[in-house]
Computed example of a mutant assay.
Amino acid sequence: MTTSPPVPVRYLKGDATAPQAKGVKIIAHVCNDAGGWGKGFVLAVSRRWPEPEAAYRRWHRARAGNDFALGAVQFVRTEKYVWIANMIGQHGTRTGSKGPPVRYEAIGTALETLAARAVELGASVHMPRIGCGLAGGRWDVVEPLIAQTLVAAGVAVTVYYFD
């Protein structure tokens, strides 16, 4: 029996908060572990739906008694067929002595959780270039993590970019 190769990541010019696909969709993005929500892609998410920000803030406030930490993922349903994945993949919000806030290992762990949920829901995944904006990450490091987790699990992935 032969298996077909995984579908590569699809790149589209556009808005990741308006995913271009049928069926269940998960919009994934990277959050920090400091409780900050107010710059970057999260602003586009909040303009469209209030629930992901409110859920993230509750999750952070109650962090002593939950799994809020690098590598964790919170799934928030915003519409019948749309979920938001708040992935903790950034330590703090500023570049410091240990470099930019991006934490690639945490993003990889979060992507594994995301892949499992996407398979469970039969969902496609939509995202900006996660970890590469305010987190200061490099796409040539993040893209292989997406291939090793989501693409390897057979999940359709679309990455959106603005001009």
Rank of each mutant, 00 (worst) to 15 (best):
P8L: 11
A152W: 03
A123Y: 02
A135W: 01
T78H: 04
L12P: 04
R77F: 02
R48Y: 00
G40K: 02
I88M: 03
I130S: 09
A135M: 05
I84S: 00
G122Y: 14
A116M: 11
E105Y: 06
R57L: 15
W37C: 12
A106T: 03
P101W: 01
F162C: 03
T158C: 09
T17E: 00
A123W: 01
G108R: 09
T78N: 08
L114S: 10
V142G: 09
G122N: 12
I130C: 12
V157L: 07
K22M: 05
G65E: 10
L70I: 04
M1T: 14
V151T: 15
A44G: 10
A55H: 06
T95S: 14
V102E: 05
Y161E: 12
A62N: 14
A28M: 04
V30K: 08
V155I: 10
E143K: 13
H91I: 06
L43S: 10
K25L: 02
V119L: 10
R138H: 10
A123F: 03
L145P: 09
E105R: 06
V159E: 02
K22L: 11
T17Y: 00
E112T: 13
G92F: 07
P101C: 11
A110W: 00
P50Y: 05
V157E: 00
V42Y: 04
Q90T: 04
L12I: 12
T78Y: 01
G96M: 07
G154K: 14
A54I: 08
R48D: 01
Y161I: 00
A118L: 12
D163L: 06
M87L: 15
I84T: 01
G122T: 10
A147F: 06
R47K: 12
D15V: 00
L43R: 12
A69K: 10
D67V: 05
E51V: 03
S4R: 11
I130E: 08
R77Q: 15
A64I: 01
H126T: 03
G92I: 11
H126W: 01
K39W: 04
A44D: 03
A135V: 07
A123Q: 01
V76F: 07
P8I: 07
A55F: 06
K22H: 05
D15N: 14
M127I: 05
A64S: 14
I146N: 02
I107V: 15
P101T: 10
A147M: 09
R10S: 08
L111T: 08
S124A: 15
N32K: 10
S4H: 10
K39G: 13
F75Q: 08
A135L: 03
E143V: 02
E112G: 15
I107C: 09
P6Y: 15
A69H: 12
R48C: 06
R57A: 14
V125A: 13
H60I: 07
P5M: 13
V30C: 15
I130D: 03
G23D: 07
R63F: 08
F162W: 09
L114M: 07
G154Q: 04
R48F: 04
P52G: 09
P6I: 13
Y81I: 02
